[in-house]
Amino acid sequence: MPGTYDNGTEIEVTDLNLWYGDNHALHDISIDIPKNSVTALIGPSGCGKSTFLRCLNRMNDLVKSCRIEGKVLIDNQDIYSKDVDVVDLRKRVGMVFQKPNPFPMSIHDNIAYGPRIHGMGKKNINGIVEEALKSGALWGEVSDRLGSSALDLSGGQQQRLCIARTLAVRPEVILFDEPCSALDPISTGKIEELILELKKKYTIVIVTHNMQQAARISDYTGFFLTGDLVEFDRTEQIFESPGEKATEDYITGRFG
């Protein structure tokens, strides 16, 4: 464990266990995720990294057979305690998915969707949309066609739209679930740049199967294997001198 962080801790997970029916998918995960930085979660597919990510905004609640034990504190609040409203939680902890999933509406309406429902900026919805699109590094490309369908954008633009849509509800944390796996290298580069920009304001957790990506953009890296968090440390540490044999094997490409 890397100890205390300069910017402080955003998410504190203690002894998290998760079952899908009888399948024990996460074992005793404990991890402290720092504020205003990028934390990458890597590991072979099926290792539980995405499952873990979905515990942080309680998307696993949607899976009927799913059972969770342990503690997840975000900003010192236990998000699994009874008095937490999962809807409020998800407003604070945004998520960007593997496949770009814009709604079948105009670009403007995609961004405005969240703020409108949350009753934010009733008067200045256009301002919010513009600001979010600028933060999502998409404004320059779409400012002249906000009314056209979001489905007409390219894959990379759609993914940046989804990021901007998440930014528009002003979260504290943004979870990225393999956001570039469906994109070409150029679009991937743009998204990575954007993530580096966003960490100034937000805490970012990103799941990726691409080790180079983790090395390029993250400050901290956690390695998952078959439901265990094998190792968690500064990214340089993990990639240059990993403490565990399994981590080294994975990073040097000996399996997975």
């Binding site: 905004n57 998307m59 949607l62 809807v87 409020d88 939680l89 998800r90 407003k91 604070r92 945004g94 998520m95 998915f97 496949k99 999933n101 814009p102 709604f103 079948p104 969707y113 969240g114 429902i117 949350h118 989804c162 849509r165 998440t166 509800v169």
Partner: peptide, 27 residues
């Protein structure tokens, strides 16, 4: 209606019914 629409809306902190009413039903 793709499951992704529902997830995207829920992940924005929108309630289940609002998600159904504004995203799922129109589609």
């Amino acid at each position: 209606v793709p499951k992704e629409y529902r997830e995207a809306s829920l992940a924005l902190g929108v309630t289940k019914w609002e998600t159904i009413r504004r995203i799922v039903l129109p589609a």
